[in-house]
Design a protein around this nucleic acid. Sequence first.
DNA 1: CCAGTAGGTTACTCGAAGTAAGTTACCTCC
DNA 2: GGAGGTAACTTACTTCGAGTAACCTACTGG
Lengths: 203, 203
Amino acid sequence: MTTTEEPRRKRMPKAQRKAQMLDIAEQVFAERGYLAASMDEIAERVGVSKPMLYEYFGSKEGLLIGCIHRARTELLDRTQQAIAGASSPEEILRLGLLAFFEFIGEHKQAWALLRQEAAVTVPSAVEEIEGIRRQQTDLIAAVIGSFDTDIDVVEAEAFAEIVVGSTERLALWCERRPEVGPALATTYVMEVVWRGVANRLKG
Amino acid sequence: MTTTEEPRRKRMPKAQRKAQMLDIAEQVFAERGYLAASMDEIAERVGVSKPMLYEYFGSKEGLLIGCIHRARTELLDRTQQAIAGASSPEEILRLGLLAFFEFIGEHKQAWALLRQEAAVTVPSAVEEIEGIRRQQTDLIAAVIGSFDTDIDVVEAEAFAEIVVGSTERLALWCERRPEVGPALATTYVMEVVWRGVANRLKG
DNA sequence: CCAGTAGGTTACTCGAAGTAAGTTACCTCC
DNA sequence: GGAGGTAACTTACTTCGAGTAACCTACTGG
């Protein structure tokens, strides 16, 4: 029985190769951490030689950024879909939180990138991750603003930051508490944070 | 005029040298980021040769951990001193938050370590930083528990995580908003978070 | 003044990021 | 169905920095 299925298939279209590289890289970065991951290993697992990675991503840092960027885009899509049907600020916040916790649960690898390894050291990677948080805070601040046009801008920003910080931290905590799923995590954040925000929205 | 002050002074006692190395390393890590910082540069700035760093800290990672560890100890001291005279849970939380924001303001370099570079990639460094957060959450959870012995343990933990996450995130945000000092930052966190926690303490 | 040691140095190895220059599979148009 | 153009790929380096082995020197007390 010779291997009939994979005769060392090579030469695939750019887009497909790129996506495959991102898949493998995300995996290796998550497994080993950014520093310990080597471009040689990633290349080998992809089944391609190292210069190809450099052709597509320019540098190790570029490859990391590629991974982060993809995760970020997906997270934004998910969140926007989730809150699309909501009407009240409370519902928006609740559905958004739920979407986030679910996303984290389904993408442990991407999440690992965002929390430890990714904040890797490379300035531009840090900026990229900050970009994800900015994306979320901007969204939240915009929602708050749309429901109370009189609220102090700085204060709205502070609320948004607090929500994002709480949520990210709680997501990490959930890893140590497997019995706490997305629904319960969402409840905890809402319970602690919502009163404070709602109070300000009215006043 | 020859340089009268520094005749290339060498040979200093271990403890002093170690402290000096930590000072310089913290500085260089904060400036360049963990990856881009080289042991050669740190050694040169200390005015000593590279193997000395390895003598004292074992590895680059060890040096980083040394920096983090020192910051952690100092933060705990500061927090404990700050809340020593408080009586109510609200006062404890408020004073603790204030101490944290002041610490961050005074130790920008150490703080930079904890937020970006430090989450460097090296597993043990990540654990070390997590240790700082654990230290804070444990303290908060203990305070909550001491005022309401009936509260659900998991819930108390979740609250503590939310407080730490909010606070850390807001501290980062303060860098972009220099007009928001420690006092105002503390107010924001208390406003949003306190109602939720207080509600649970009573109920 | 000399022996022991704390504090220090020079000069390497080794591994991984990044690159220059060349090679091969595939498609197309005659 | 073969020339030839090009997208996809490789081999064989250079460079730079972490980590180390082996050796050196200033200060101490007796």
